[in-house]
Every structure is written in C-alpha cells, then in structure tokens.
Amino acid sequence: MGNPCNDMADPRPHILVVGGTEYCLGSFDGKRVEYDFSKVLAYLDAKGRSLFGESFKIREGDKGTFLKLCSYMVKDIESCRKMEMDIGKGILLTGPVGCGKTSMMRLVRHLVPHKRNYEIIPSRNITFAFNHIGYKIIEDYGNGRFYCFDDLGVEPMGRYFGDDCNVMGEVLVSRHELFQRTKIPTHITTNLNAEELEERYGKRVRSRMRQMFNLISFDKDTKDKRI
C-alpha cells in the first residue's frame, strides 16, 4: 500500500492514537504518506478492540477485503487501479449475514480522521422515517452529505398516507443525480447479490448503481462472526 495523502494540516498524519498508544501507519515525507499495510492492520486491530470490545480481531480471511477498503480510504490510486477500483466512486460492500460488513465500514473510516467522512445510517431507519414524515426524507438523504447506507435490502416497503414507496430505491436515484452533479460518493453494505438487488430495486436503479459503486464482496462461504 502506498501513495498519496496530500493537503495535510496535521503535521503527523501517519500517526494515529488508540487508548494513549501511538500507531505509525507508514512514512511521511512532509507531503504524502506511504502506508504500510501491516502497520495499518495493527492500528485497525487495536481500534477495532476499542470500538467493538476485546473479542474483536482481524481474521486472516478478511485481510484481502481490508486491503481493498483501506486502499480506497487513503486514496491509493495505483493500488486501487490494480484492484480495478475507481476512487471517484463509492463502495458497495456485499456479503453474507454476520460477516462483518458494518463493522468494517465503521472501522476503516478512522484511517482518515483528517478527511470529511461518512455517516452510517441503517436503511430500515430511513424507511421508518419516511412512514412518519413522507417524501421529504428522500430529499433529505439525496442531499450533499456523505452517507453509508447499512443493510440495504432488509428494509420494508415504505408507506405514507396510503401510498407505497420503494424508499431506498428512490434515495439511490437521488444519490445518483447528486453523484453526477457533484461526484459526492455514497457507500452501501448489503447481504444481497447483484441479481437480488435488481429484483428488489429494479433495472433503472441497478444500472445507476453500476455507475456509482465499486463492488467489494466477501466470499459467500464466509462464516457468521456473531455465532
């Protein structure tokens, strides 16, 4: 892992602290950070324990997924290109129930505290809010803020004053329009595969998602870490 982190106000952007302990993520020449993935993993392991409890650990089988997410987060253009990822797009993180998608997205954003980061919102919460407030919710989540929509596909159909609405489908259409105008990315976690997403949200949303996201997938045989 290498490459750039420019425009840093922090004199030590390669040093992050967890519980009073400093973790060096690589080398810094005054203009950019050259990240060392093994050091990044050591930091993430410690940060994960502080966020999720002492039982947290980065499993060997997850390191490839972490490498992709970390390369994306630090905008390592060369590594992302090799892994066929576009740093201008968002992340669509897919995998079985309990494989750790949400925890990963909560964790890797701490790698870049100096950058504007995303808020993680459960998709079902957006639908529940729509049921109470109505179509303003779609407008609100289609705005210029940074979001990661968590557990896309498990939310129910929305209903407001008798009108049914595929709320997250409409939110994604709005986010696509925002992406085209501003290049502000959206991130998603989901248990659904590409075919299931198309069945749930339709061809027009699936087509837009191809333009918006880098697909990162856990192996379908990944075990449930909650068990």
Score class of each variant (00 low, 15 high):
127 T>A: 04
206 R>Y: 04
56 F>G: 05
42 A>C: 09
23 Y>M: 07
115 K>Q: 11
225 K>Y: 01
58 I>H: 02
30 G>H: 03
122 P>D: 13
137 I>V: 07
78 E>I: 13
160 Y>D: 03
61 G>L: 11
134 G>N: 04
212 M>I: 03
208 R>Y: 03
50 S>V: 01
177 E>S: 14
96 P>G: 08
10 D>S: 10
82 K>T: 07
134 G>E: 03
110 H>D: 06
64 G>V: 11
51 L>S: 02
115 K>D: 10
150 D>P: 02
113 P>R: 01
138 I>C: 07
52 F>M: 05
115 K>N: 13
182 T>E: 13
166 N>I: 01
64 G>E: 11
145 R>I: 12
95 G>C: 15
194 A>W: 15
143 N>H: 07
219 D>I: 09
70 C>P: 09
169 G>P: 02
77 I>W: 00
178 L>G: 08
137 I>L: 05
211 Q>N: 11
125 N>A: 12
35 Y>L: 06
88 G>P: 12
174 S>M: 04
98 G>A: 09
90 G>L: 05
38 S>R: 15
215 L>W: 08
122 P>H: 06
148 C>A: 06
2 G>D: 14
185 P>G: 12
46 A>Q: 03
28 F>M: 08
218 F>R: 00
102 T>F: 04
159 R>M: 15
97 V>Y: 12
120 I>H: 10
158 G>Q: 07
141 Y>N: 04
34 E>I: 14
139 E>L: 10
196 E>L: 14
